[in-house]
Simulated scan of single mutants.
Amino acid sequence: MNRKRMLVICTLLLALSIGQSSTWGSRANAAALAPEKALQVQDNEASKDDDDLLRTLGISSDEELYDALYNGQTLADIAQAHNQDAQAIVDLQVAQLTEQLDQRLANNSITPEQYQAHKAELTQVVAKSVFGL
Rank of each mutant, 00 (worst) to 15 (best):
residue 69 L to N: 10
residue 128 K to L: 11
residue 91 D to P: 00
residue 33 L to V: 12
residue 6 M to T: 11
residue 54 L to N: 07
residue 76 A to L: 13
residue 8 V to W: 04
residue 65 L to P: 02
residue 19 G to T: 05
residue 1 M to Y: 04
residue 28 A to V: 09
residue 117 A to M: 05
residue 61 S to H: 05
residue 88 A to M: 06
residue 51 D to C: 06
residue 63 E to V: 06
residue 24 W to T: 04
residue 120 A to D: 13
residue 49 D to A: 15
residue 130 V to E: 02
residue 89 I to A: 04
residue 116 Q to F: 01
residue 79 A to F: 15
residue 10 C to K: 11
residue 14 L to P: 01
residue 7 L to K: 13
residue 118 H to W: 00
residue 8 V to M: 11
residue 11 T to M: 12
residue 60 S to D: 11
residue 107 N to C: 03
residue 2 N to I: 04
residue 111 T to E: 09
residue 111 T to L: 07
residue 2 N to K: 09
residue 131 F to G: 01
residue 4 K to Q: 15
residue 15 A to C: 13
residue 25 G to I: 03
residue 78 I to W: 12
residue 28 A to T: 05
residue 132 G to Y: 02
residue 42 Q to C: 06
residue 40 Q to S: 12
residue 93 Q to L: 15
residue 46 A to C: 07
residue 9 I to R: 13
residue 18 I to M: 13
residue 39 L to R: 11
residue 55 R to H: 13
residue 96 Q to I: 08
residue 91 D to N: 12
residue 79 A to K: 14
residue 68 A to E: 10
residue 45 E to H: 07
residue 75 L to H: 08
residue 113 E to L: 14
residue 40 Q to M: 08
residue 1 M to R: 04
residue 43 D to Y: 13
residue 64 E to P: 00
residue 79 A to Q: 14
residue 50 D to L: 14
residue 94 V to R: 00
residue 51 D to T: 09
residue 74 T to F: 07
residue 122 L to E: 00
residue 106 A to V: 04
residue 36 E to Y: 04
residue 114 Q to Y: 01
residue 118 H to Q: 05
residue 68 A to R: 12
residue 69 L to I: 15
residue 92 L to A: 01
residue 122 L to Y: 00
residue 89 I to Y: 06
residue 74 T to R: 06
residue 119 K to T: 00
residue 35 P to V: 03
residue 82 H to P: 14
residue 56 T to E: 08
residue 24 W to L: 11
